[in-house]
Simulated scan of single mutants.
Amino acid sequence: MYHMEKVHAPTPEALMRSRYAAYVLKKADYLLYSWFPDTRPAELELGDDIKWVGLNILGSELSVDGLEGTVEFIAKYKIGGRAAKMTEKSHFVRHGNRWYYVDGDVAE
């Protein structure tokens, strides 16, 4: 069986894509595992009424030292049968050989 938590994403964008897949598959354990410990919530509630239907990466950037990165994306989903979307600029940090999600700025 494939275990998402055994794979370490090589870039912030790869981690963003794997985290989106974890939301689709409702893998809260992987989402928490890939979240930076200083900003990680104690638990994560993934609503059963949300169906994620698409991810569009708008852009990604790495800091000069390669230890921080951002990924801007649009995630499309359905809730109660109605289409919706979320735009976020996510922040990532590399600690050791691993990238972690830190937090994100959601556009209104």
Rank of each mutant, 00 (worst) to 15 (best):
M1C: 12
A83N: 15
D38W: 04
V71K: 03
R40I: 02
D65Q: 01
L15D: 05
L62G: 05
R40E: 01
V93R: 15
E5Y: 03
S18Y: 08
S34C: 01
G47W: 08
Y100F: 14
D29I: 01
H8C: 05
E43K: 15
N56S: 15
H3P: 06
N56D: 15
T39E: 04
K85Y: 11
I79V: 13
V64I: 13
T11K: 09
Y33N: 08
E5R: 13
A83V: 10
V24L: 10
A75F: 05
E45K: 15
E13C: 06
S18I: 10
V7Y: 12
D29S: 12
A22D: 03
M16A: 14
I57V: 14
T39Y: 02
Y100P: 09
V71D: 03
K51Y: 07
A75S: 09
E61I: 06
W52V: 12
M4P: 03
N97S: 14
P10H: 10
L31K: 04
R17L: 04
A42V: 12
Y77T: 08
D65R: 06
D103I: 01
H8M: 11
E72G: 00
V93Q: 15
K27R: 15
G59W: 02
I50W: 04
L67K: 15
Y2F: 14
E68D: 11
S34H: 05
L32I: 09
A9I: 02
G69K: 00
I79S: 13
V53G: 02
H8D: 15
D65H: 04
G81I: 12
L62W: 06
T87W: 02
F36C: 03
M1H: 15
L44H: 07
D49T: 13
G69V: 01
L44M: 10
A14N: 03
S90M: 02
D38C: 05
L62N: 08
D65I: 02
N56T: 13
A14H: 00
V7F: 10
G69A: 02
H91L: 11
V64Q: 12
L31M: 05
V106H: 09
K85G: 10
T87L: 04
G47A: 14
G54D: 00
A21F: 09
R94D: 05
S60Q: 11
G104M: 00
P41I: 07
E43D: 15
T39K: 10
Y101Q: 04
A9C: 03
V64N: 10
L58V: 04
N97R: 10
D103P: 07
R40C: 02
K78L: 08
L46K: 09
E88G: 03
E72N: 02
R40P: 03
K27P: 00
L58T: 00
A14F: 00
D103V: 00
W99L: 05
F73N: 01
L67W: 01
E61H: 11
L44I: 11
E68Y: 13
E68K: 14
P10E: 09
H91P: 00
L25K: 13
E61M: 11
H95W: 14
Y77H: 10
A14S: 09
I50T: 09
F92D: 08
G104W: 08
L55P: 06
N97D: 12
